[in-house]
Design a protein around this nucleic acid. Sequence first.
DNA 1: ACTTGTTGTGTGAACGTTAACAAACGGGCT
DNA 2: AGCCCGTTTGTTAACGTTCACACAACAAGT
Lengths: 341, 341
Amino acid sequence: MTDGRSPVMADVARIAGVSHQTVSRVLNHHPNVKATTRDRVLAAIEELGYRRNLSARALVTRRTNTLGVVAFDTTLYGPASTLFGLEQAARDAGYFISIVSLKTINRKTVGEALDYLAAQAVDGLIAIAPQVEAAAAVSALRGTVPVVAVEGGEAGGMPVVAVDQLRGAELATRHLLDLGHRTVWHVAGPVDWLEAEGRRRGWRNTLEAAGVEVPPVVEGDWSPRSGYEAGRRIADDARAGRATAVFVSNDQMALGLLRALHEARIRVPQDVSIAGFDDIPEAEFLTPPLTTVRQDFAEVGRKSIALLLDLIESGPGPEAERIVVPPTLVTRASTAGPATT
Amino acid sequence: MTDGRSPVMADVARIAGVSHQTVSRVLNHHPNVKATTRDRVLAAIEELGYRRNLSARALVTRRTNTLGVVAFDTTLYGPASTLFGLEQAARDAGYFISIVSLKTINRKTVGEALDYLAAQAVDGLIAIAPQVEAAAAVSALRGTVPVVAVEGGEAGGMPVVAVDQLRGAELATRHLLDLGHRTVWHVAGPVDWLEAEGRRRGWRNTLEAAGVEVPPVVEGDWSPRSGYEAGRRIADDARAGRATAVFVSNDQMALGLLRALHEARIRVPQDVSIAGFDDIPEAEFLTPPLTTVRQDFAEVGRKSIALLLDLIESGPGPEAERIVVPPTLVTRASTAGPATT
DNA sequence: ACTTGTTGTGTGAACGTTAACAAACGGGCT
DNA sequence: AGCCCGTTTGTTAACGTTCACACAACAAGT
């Protein structure tokens, strides 16, 4: 600071009266350093305000202490929360994180993202790869560097940490059936999203297990607008009493659907019950408050980092691990028993 | 790949029949390289799949090509969008980004975050520092490394890129007055947030300029819940006809407020008009669709990165720059003229 | 007294790049 | 021819760590 350059190990060594190697040992918590020496070194470090140069370190250790994250549309509540959880967990573990968030997912953009992270020589990679396509693209990279997929389905036998989408969908659907509804309709997410697919399967399985009719699926794209459009499509069936309960694949679409039903003068939950997925902060304050499935994104973040670090330390296990985080059902006013006609 | 290590410059040089320095020159687009030589080098790079080692490069250039970002609660729509914009802009400019997102902001956590980024020797720093406290903490670091604040108020004379909060608040308040409301109430964000303060000032200024009465401010914490509570507090005044228009400092609180008014059987916009701030994707599909102020977060991201890179390249200008991005009013069904009694 | 092992420390040599300088080459001038 | 100057290339030395090894000091066993 005072003199031109920032201090280096040799400066610390000189002040502490030891060799640079001893300083290195102190910094790396090597056991064989005498306590008094260690103290002198630490004092010198303190005095100079010394910080070790990570580039030099990375050069020789071939480890950058950086993890790469490929994410998609991080303004959505789910991905944003996952990212937040990942960042916290990585920092706690002493790793840096480098993020690429993509606007659109296809082989080209994912390929570029991986290139970008490869250029940084990340020690490991987390792919928030909720789309079939993306998961495949990431899977192709495996071998070069350890990869963990978040919400990644079973694509390509990668290690995966994911919320149990099937279970979540089952919770919501079961809940609606238990309230007495003859069947449950479904507004799904985009076909190429793994989470959408999981929720759709969980919903269908539950209906089939209960031996009830499976209504046609209405498909959306996660946006409130698409939920709104789905609502207009479902309105007629609701008025005719064919649709009395709807499980919507995320809360944003559920919000749009609520709007459409309101416009159609269909009451929730008296005429139609609605359940969503995600438990966004707004869910509790919609009209009516939304029954939904809550995901523990922070836990997903922690588990992902833990798994990735394990992969980095000890190499890949014999079997690609699949860690599942259980979701919980949050019951609110948007679901009730069907009207007794 | 095939042999143990990944290729280095010397390998490329050998294949191309030149010295490693020439390879370096090609990589750095040095002008004085013969075209044929350049082609041979590029071919060798291609053949080996060579990537340059950024740690080694950073070691000698003292530049990491990494920008640090300190953010706060990146699951909120605003910060998440800003982050997204920053990331895109940085990548386009050939920089990496390292993020720290904090759960709570105070001198300690911000200090730790800055330490963390300093350890990485970032070339520059972007602080999404929407709180007075945070802005101060970041400001203290200036001098070591170029810093740009996003939404940072005028704190400490730092260069700032921000949406014009005053103007946004003025647009919303003006709009409500123009509709014929006698005055406009306000649900504000937390006092220590600069954006909240800006919107509050813009609101107050507009009322005072119009020479109308300034109602008491109701304070929230950005959450839907606090908006809901604010709504319950305002309900009485609304019923009594004292409050016919409310400007809410963000859309999430507006959502909660809508819920509270609905419960109190107060109609929007017939009895009370509501305007929000942010234009979250949900705003259009609330009941009723929300009039709000839209911020161009992508633009803020681009401008911030541009300013920071400028600072890095050419050093600080004589004056701390302040770049302002204009917001726009989006008119929807939640605002209308007052009931004609 | 002599080995043997353990603990603490120092000495060089990497790691892979860029910076600084030097040198070879050629063309255009006196 | 001899000289100068710009272009192109090569050589050597950093950059600041960690790693591999050597070595000293000392304790404990034969």
